[in-house]
Design a protein around this nucleic acid. Structure first.
Lengths: 187, 187
DNA sequence: TTAAAAACCTGCGAAAAGTCAGTTTTTTAA
DNA sequence: TTAAAAAACTGACTTTTCGCAGGTTTTTAA
């Protein structure tokens, strides 16, 4: 059930919908300064989603009551949250299109670029280390496919892997492969 | 570019993201009483989406300026729109999960049930007639697969087709096939 | 009414993605 | 330090989905 809103003070989490056979779909990652647990505002119903830290995290909880008080006192907050949802919605609908039309390779590349945008990298190594399983849960494919795709991306000299760490050799070349899918950048 | 908000006074439209090779992804259908064209509120940027009537429609346009005036005068409007987006977002993220995990058959069934929920049926015939192509654009597959799936659904005595019209013989049996995917109903 | 266009359907082969079983490597914790 | 567990990897095989080519039916508009 909706338990108000969580503000991420420190760290980051993966937000996922649990599906069939324990297979989960990661719908996004949320970082420091962002909020989670707010999808069901206004409607008191239960909804199916979970969040797990991927980097040690500290969160602040605001109950639904507190939020409602703040909405009446600070109208700007309501507006900002509205625009935030509108943008998230656009992003999510873009993802629906991608899942329907992209190949596994494209989806994995898209996932890597997402992590790069969201978490950045140091010395070209992605700052967030995900397991192959987590990448597959996010990209919408299987663990084995992710492993194979990363392997061919290595052969194509687009990335390098040092254990779990992924080094991106050329963001531009990766982007080029999926260019048609977000000509208008709203991913 | 964002052109304010459109209110659907009469009729209904399909909202789609155009992708590669002219292949479009229908992200939802909007009916009388609902709004479209509002995904990019607050951010002035261009975004990629289009809407086409599927039933003769009349729309009212409210410019961004008008909307902003209304937001300050009627705070409740902002709140209602916020909750609307939050729910749409939940729906969209559920759809992402479905696209990642469902088979073609399940996706087609899910599409039929969506149309049933949204447009209803008379004498068990769906009130909205879509082309096979449109069903595929919504379900996230190809026209041929939709045709084949409808054909097997006919054999399984779950539906009947009279030309373009689709008659659903048992909503319950169809629901049962995709039950695991929305045990918590948020589709 | 009728020709043209659009939509619908079918079979077949190809490609992509997924599954399974087993091995190797890395990480974890006693 | 080292045994156990987890994660990463690989190859062979199966299944699903796709795409093409060609046909039929239905719809549209002159």
């Amino acid at each position: 059930p909706v338990q108000g809103l969580y503000f991420i003070k420190q760290g980051s989490v993966k937000v996922a919908k649990t599906g069939l056979h324990g297979k989960e779909q990661i719908v996004r990652f949320s970082c420091k300064g962002e909020t989670i647990g707010h999808r069901g505002f206004g409607t008191a119903h239960i909804y199916q989603i979970s969040a797990v830290a991927v980097q040690d995290a500290t969160l602040c909880n605001f109950s639904s009551e507190t939020m409602h008080q703040m909405f009446t006192k600070v109208p700007q907050l309501t507006y900002d949250l509205m625009t935030f949802y509108a943008e998230e919605l656009n992003r999510s609908e873009t993802k629906v299109k991608k899942f329907a039309q992209m190949t596994v390779r494209e989806k994995v590349i898209d996932a890597l670029l997402y992590v790069n945008r969201k978490f950045g990298r140091t010395n070209d190594v992605l700052n967030l280390q995900l397991s192959r399983r987590e990448i597959s849960d996010f990209a919408g494919t299987t663990e084995e496919q992710v492993i194979r795709t990363l392997s061919t991306l290595k052969k194509d000299r687009l990335i390098e892997t040092i254990g779990k760490r992924i080094k991106i050799k050329s963001v531009e070349l990766l982007r080029k492969e999926i260019a048609d899918h977000n000509y208008f950048i709203d991913s």
